[in-house]
Design a protein around this nucleic acid. Structure first.
Length: 61
DNA sequence: CTAATTTT
DNA sequence: AAAATTAG
């Protein structure tokens, strides 16, 4: 499923913006809860970066 | 250190 | 191949 809702993320340049992740997946060690990680693209630089997304955010590609 | 993922 | 991501 495609990622739709924007997430408030800290940009690499320090700014804050609502971006739609390129991909979201769960990053969880065995036995621990872990976190959801989103892959985003910085609108300024075009560079990709990762950031935590809310635990209830659906996995998507 | 562990977890998955993908850009760099 | 390494970096980065979060938090227990």
């Amino acid at each position: 499923m495609a990622c739709t809702k924007p997430v408030k993320v800290k940009l690499p340049d320090g700014g804050e913006k609502e971006l739609v992740p390129k991909k979201v997946w769960s990053l969880s060690p065995k036995g621990r809860k872990g976190v959801k990680i989103g892959l985003f693209q910085d609108p300024a630089s075009g560079k990709y970066f990762r950031a935590k997304v809310p635990d209830d955010y659906p996995e998507c590609s």
